[in-house]
């Protein structure tokens, strides 16, 4: 646990402490989800943890609930985008000041959550990404995958107007303005990259901090060569649509 003063940040518009919601999308992660919930609570005791069980057929919901998390049970599998957006909708409706997104498979280091929150609080950033590559350590990957990630990073950095090295990271913290945007509109299918572009397009500031990711501890990665190719095409198309298309909504931000 880090600096105790961090846990009682003053809210920018008043004296009440920050309300933080941890959104944990989980699909058939019964062996890890409890541990992830525990890690989040250890890293940030005042956080409310919301596990979004995306139609799991195992004990994911029960284990998450037993670990003390709230559980949103999707009636069927809607995919990562729909599951995460359900979390943002809830964060918006229940008045949370910030929301952190942490995968239920344990690949995101919850203990580094204070780093992201510190960046969100101490700068005027609206969305902070936990990056695997901001410093050169802590993560290894194949060559083609690195190439794809580099291309997306270059493109998104140009659109966002500042260097973002890891646009596919699903470990991120959103402030109230970003929560509002994502509750209203969240990109379908593969939302990580497109959501950064969307936020940037609407004038929100996206930054990153370096974190150390872990290798997956259980379950299977869903990445195959064909899926990777489809992913690139889909994401590039999505970015193109966001760049030429009419912005879905206009945000009234106080910044």
């Amino acid at each position: 646990m880090r600096d105790a003063a961090l846990h009682s940040w003053p809210h920018p518009h008043g004296a009440r402490p920050m309300k933080l919601l941890a959104i944990v999308p989980a699909f058939n992660e019964q062996h890890l989800v409890g541990q992830v919930v525990d890690e989040i609570r250890a890293a940030w005791p005042s956080a409310d943890v919301m596990v979004v069980d995306d139609g799991s057929r195992d004990e994911t919901a029960a284990r998450a609930s037993a670990a003390g998390a709230r559980v949103l049970r999707m009636p069927f599998n809607v995919g990562i985008s729909g599951a995460v957006q359900a979390g943002y909708k809830l964060a918006w409706e229940e008045g949370y000041d910030a929301a952190v997104q942490i995968d239920g498979d344990g690949q995101h280091p919850a203990d580094q959550l204070p780093l992201l929150l510190d960046e969100l609080h101490s700068t005027d950033a609206n969305l902070v990404i936990g990056s695997r590559f901001a410093r050169k350590r802590g993560y290894r990957s194949t060559r083609s995958r690195r190439g794809g990630i580099l291309l997306l990073s270059w493109l998104v950095s140009r659109i966002a107007g500042r260097r973002l090295s890891d646009t596919t990271s699903g470990f991120r913290v959103a402030d109230r303005d970003t929560i509002e945007l994502f509750a209203a509109h969240y990109p379908p299918d593969y939302p990580e990259v497109e959501s950064i572009v969307l936020a940037s397009r609407l004038g929100l500031k996206v930054t990153e901090v370096s974190v150390e990711m872990r290798q997956r501890r259980a379950g299977q990665s869903s990445i195959t060569p064909i899926r990777s190719a489809y992913y690139m095409v889909k994401v590039l198309l999505g970015i193109g649509v966001l760049c030429i298309g009419r912005p879905p909504i206009r945000l009234e931000t106080g910044r």
């Binding site: 559980v71 049970r73 809607v78 909708k89």
Partner: peptide
């Protein structure tokens, strides 16, 4: 499909609120 997804999200939220 986007309406379907919005409905699924709403059902999950209502279900959670009801249980709480």
């Amino acid at each position: 499909s986007s309406q379907n997804e919005a409905l699924a999200q709403r059902i999950a939220m209502l279900d959670e609120a009801l249980r709480r």
